[in-house]
Every structure is written in C-alpha cells, then in structure tokens.
C-alpha cells in the first residue's frame, strides 16, 4: 500500500488523473487541504485544513475496473463499516455513494475514470467529515462530522489506516467475486421512501424500491418498475 501525501493540492482526484500512468495500482493520494476539491456533477467539496480525511485511491486492475458499477456503493459501504466501529449509529448509504448519519451527510465519494481506447484507470475520491467543528456555506445536503456526533476529536491517522485497510479488503472482495450485496442493502437510506426525480425531463414523484443486485436503483413510477443507472436523475426528498 503506497500513499502520497500533500499538505495542499488542487484535488487528489485530479492529481491521479494527471499522473496515473506513472503510479502503481492501489496508490493512495491524500491531502490536508484541497484548493479545488470536487464533488459529483462539478460540485465543490470544501474542508478545513487538517481536520478531515480527503484522499483518492487509484485502481488499475482490469477485473476491478470492469465492476465499476458496484464500486461507488461498495466504497461507501467500506466507509460506513469503519464509522460503525466507532460507535456511530443511524448510518446508511444514500445511493449512489453518500454515507449518511440519520439525515445528514458525513461522507461523499466521487468516482472518476480515464479512458483512451479502453478504461485505463479508476479513481475513487473520498471525503469524510472527521473533526470539522462547524460547517459554513450553502450545502445541497446538510453535513455532519464524527466530532459533532461523538463530542470528541478523532485520531485522524488511526482512522485513516482503518479506512484504507477496509477499502483494500473491499476491492479484494470484488476481485475474488465475493458478493456483498446482501450486507449492503441493510443500509439502504432511500429504500421505501418517496421522492421526486427527473425522468426524461419530467419531474415525477416515485417510490424507491431500493438498491438492486447490480447496484442500480430500482424505483416504481406509477406502478412501473424501472432501474436508474444514470447520474442525471436528481432526487428531492
């Protein structure tokens, strides 16, 4: 397991996209501060210096890359299990790849890839609110940190080691074909909820059936079951 650390960088994901050819499979890149941190759909990811865990993991194994459809959800599952080991209750995975504590977001994940003729690498970017005291600004989803829940500082290094270890273990499961689906669906935040979503340009109220076996999201639209794959679907609860 190799880690590159930066006190300050634009974005750990962007760093890996620029340098993946020269780096080994399963290289971690971590930063204390990101000046241009990214979320999905070009949103920003902001964090105070040194208080939170922000890193990206490079994947170059073809077998694991082929299973990219499951990687978002399974990465979120790995983070969730480590948070659970700290005694945090009310954890869930909000499809496709947020970790929630009750109705607040504690972790965001951005999965990016680089392809030429075929996929060359996958980058799993993870941001976890660890010791943030308070959050300023406007957020799409209300954030929360481990410190706010546990009412004490968390040792960032020890936490980081646990996260890294479980992520590697999760990727090994994917490589070996071990199915984690039955374990994952126990933490499905959206299951059974009603939500608005945009389908083919129309805003519709739908029922969420839950995360399906291929890690897409199954919904019921006026009695018709559909699977959502694309990130263009926006949910408003």
């Amino acid at each position: 397991m190799k880690e590159l650390f930066f006190e300050s960088i634009d974005s750990t994901n962007t760093y890996l996209k620029r340098n993946y050819e020269d780096l080994e499979d399963l290289t971690f890149v971590r930063a204390d501060l990101q000046t241009a941190g990214k979320g999905r759909n070009a949103r920003k990811w902001s964090s105070s210096k040194g208080k939170n865990l922000m890193f990206s993991l490079l994947v170059k194994d073809k077998k694991v890359m082929k299973a990219f459809g499951s990687l978002s959800v399974l990465s979120a599952y790995a983070v969730l299990k480590v948070l659970e080991s700290y005694g945090i209750e009310g954890l869930s995975i909000k499809w496709p790849n947020d970790v929630y504590v009750k109705d607040k977001k504690i972790c965001g994940i951005l999965l990016e890839g680089v392809s030429k003729d075929e996929m060359e690498c996958l980058i799993i970017g993870i941001g976890i609110n660890v010791n943030e005291d308070h959050f300023e600004g406007d957020f799409l989803h209300e954030p929360v940190s481990m410190k706010q829940i546990l009412h004490k500082n968390v040792d960032l290094n020890k936490f980081k080691e646990k996260i890294y270890d479980l992520l590697i273990e999760t990727i090994d499961s994917i490589r070996s074909g071990t199915d984690l689906y039955e374990k994952v669906i126990a933490y499905d935040y959206l299951k059974g909820k009603r939500a608005y979503c945009l389908i083919d340009g129309l805003r519709k109220e739908v029922s969420i059936i839950g995360i399906d076996a291929d890690y897409s999201l199954k919904i019921s639209d006026e009695g018709e079951e559909k699977n959502i794959f694309s990130d263009e679907i926006t949910f408003h609860l």
């Binding site: 990687l71 790849n97 999965l111 392809s115 003729d117 890690y215 794959f229 694309s230 990130d231």
Partner: peptide, 13 residues
C-alpha cells in the same frame, strides 16, 4: 461519459 455514477474522462490516444 457518465455510467453507473462513474464520470469517465475520454482522452485522445
């Protein structure tokens, strides 16, 4: 290209 929550950069070869 986006697929299954993965944003995939397509680079020219």
């Amino acid at each position: 290209i986006e697929a299954m929550k993965l944003e995939n950069e397509i680079q020219s070869a």
